Simulated assay, not measured.
Amino acid sequence: MREWQVKRRERTRQLIELGGLVAKAGLVELTEDDRAALYGAFLTVAAKLRGPDGAQALVLFRRKGRRAFEAEQAEDKPSLG
C-alpha cells in the first residue's frame, strides 16, 4: 500500500474516532445536530486551551475524560457476584 493511502486511512480513522467522541458525549442530541453550535463549542474550548490557564484546563479535561472512560469500562465488565 502506498504511503499516502496509509496516511489517508489513519486520518480517516482519527476523524471517525473523534466523531464518535462527539456522539458519546451526547453533543449531537444536545445541540440537535447543529454543526454551527458544535463548532462554536469547539472554538470555545480551543480558546480556553490557548489562554493563560490552558495547561490547567487541559489537565482537568483529561482527568474528567479518563474518569468517564474508566466508568464506562467498569459498566461493561460483568460483575462476579
Rank of each mutant, 00 (worst) to 15 (best):
G65D: 06
L43I: 11
A71F: 09
G20K: 12
D33K: 12
R66H: 12
G81M: 06
E10W: 11
S79M: 14
T44N: 09
R8C: 02
D53A: 03
D34W: 04
I16Q: 05
R67E: 13
E3P: 00
A37W: 10
G51P: 03
E17Q: 12
L27R: 06
L80I: 03
R9I: 02
K64L: 14
T31Y: 03
R2G: 01
V28L: 14
F61W: 15
P52T: 11
F42C: 11
K24F: 12
V59R: 13
A47C: 09
E10I: 10
S79Y: 10
V45W: 09
Q14E: 04
Q14F: 04
F69G: 04
F42W: 08
R67F: 10
G81L: 01
R62D: 10
K7T: 00
V6T: 00
Q56V: 12
E72M: 15
G26P: 06
A25W: 01
R9K: 01
A46G: 06
R13M: 13
V28C: 12
R50Y: 02
L49Q: 08
T31D: 00
D33C: 09
E32A: 07
R66Q: 07
G51Q: 02
A55Q: 04
D53F: 09
V22D: 04
P52N: 12
L38S: 06
Y39R: 15
T44P: 00
Q73E: 06
A47D: 11
L49W: 07
R9M: 10
L21P: 00
L27I: 05
R13Q: 08
T31S: 14
E72R: 14
L49C: 13
E17L: 15
F61S: 08
P78V: 07
Q73R: 13
E29F: 06
Q56S: 14
E29C: 05
F69Q: 05
P52K: 09
R66C: 09
R63S: 14
A37V: 15
E3R: 00
L43C: 15
E10Q: 11
E29A: 11
S79W: 09
Q5F: 01
E75T: 03
E29I: 08
